[in-house]
Computed example of a mutant assay.
Amino acid sequence: MHINFCLQEIDLKDNNLKTIEEIISFQHLHRLVCLKLWYNQIAYIPIQIGTLTNLERLYLNRNKIEKIPAQLFFCRKLRYLDLSHNNLTSIPADIGFLQNLQYFAVTANRIETLPPELFQCKKLRTLNLGNNCLTVLPSRFGELTGLMQLELRGNRLEGLPVELSECRLLKRSGLIVEEDLFNTLPLSETEELLKAQFTQK
């Protein structure tokens, strides 16, 4: 059996996997940078995930995951985390430890609220929250000043926080939301977002 000690990427897309303990418990994966486990039948993330401390990109979308273990947040180098199309009902407060996170997707889950710690991820560029069960959004969205894409379509929202205008890089085209929700913003805030649309490339 040949093992690549310098392995940096594993792609196990669409393999009907139900468990991944044996895969990620390989001691030789400490240099792994990218792990693609999308389109499987994975029901939970084993605690061994925390040993992959060099991991930067993790694709777990389109599985059957119900809970995110605390050990995932030991992967402090994560820049890209896709958990969309799973069965999640919450985002752990430990998300705040992922200070390098730039892309975070939990589209099409059953999430009802957002933890305040999410807004400690100051490097976020893309935040995909569409098709969940959110009813209100925190005013702290204004703290994510690097945000360029925010997906909110398909929730149970009645309005948007006016603080979105503080996300100077967020253009109207990057705000994926129902038109009637966008129109709940005060005129001055919609002008700010539209101004960003035309003043930035």
Rank of each mutant, 00 (worst) to 15 (best):
M1K: 11
I3G: 09
N4Y: 04
F5M: 12
F5K: 14
C6T: 01
L7Y: 03
E9R: 11
D11V: 09
D14P: 00
N15W: 01
E21T: 14
E21R: 13
E21F: 08
E22S: 14
I23F: 03
S25L: 09
F26D: 15
H28Q: 12
H30I: 08
H30G: 02
L32S: 02
C34G: 00
L35E: 03
L35Y: 04
K36V: 07
L37G: 03
L37P: 05
W38D: 08
Y39S: 09
N40E: 05
Q41C: 13
Q41H: 12
I42M: 13
A43G: 06
A43P: 00
Y44H: 12
I47G: 02
Q48W: 03
I49F: 02
G50E: 05
T53R: 14
T53Q: 13
N54L: 00
N54T: 07
L60K: 06
I65S: 08
E66W: 06
P69L: 12
P69A: 09
L72W: 01
F73V: 05
F73N: 10
F74A: 08
R76F: 10
R76P: 00
R76D: 11
K77V: 00
K77R: 12
Y80E: 02
Y80P: 00
L81K: 03
L83R: 02
L83P: 01
S84V: 05
S84P: 05
H85Q: 09
L88C: 06
P92W: 04
G96A: 04
F97R: 10
Q102M: 07
Y103I: 02
Y103T: 04
F104M: 05
F104S: 02
A105L: 00
A105P: 00
T107Q: 03
T107S: 01
T107C: 05
A108I: 00
N109H: 07
T113Q: 06
P115K: 02
L118A: 12
Q120H: 12
Q120D: 10
C121T: 12
K122F: 08
R125N: 13
R125T: 11
R125D: 11
R125L: 13
N128S: 06
L129D: 06
G130M: 09
N131V: 02
N131K: 08
N131H: 12
N132E: 08
N132A: 04
V136L: 09
V136N: 11
P138E: 06
S139G: 08
R140D: 10
R140V: 00
F141K: 11
F141C: 15
G142H: 06
L144Y: 12
G146Q: 10
L147D: 01
M148H: 12
L150M: 13
E151G: 14
R153W: 08
R153K: 15
G154L: 10
G154S: 09
E158M: 14
L160K: 03
E166G: 02
R168I: 13
L169G: 09
L169W: 15
L170P: 04
R172H: 14
E178A: 14
E179S: 15
D180W: 10
F182Y: 15
T184S: 15
L187P: 06
S188D: 13
E189M: 08
E191Y: 05
L193S: 05
A196K: 09
T199M: 08
T199Y: 03
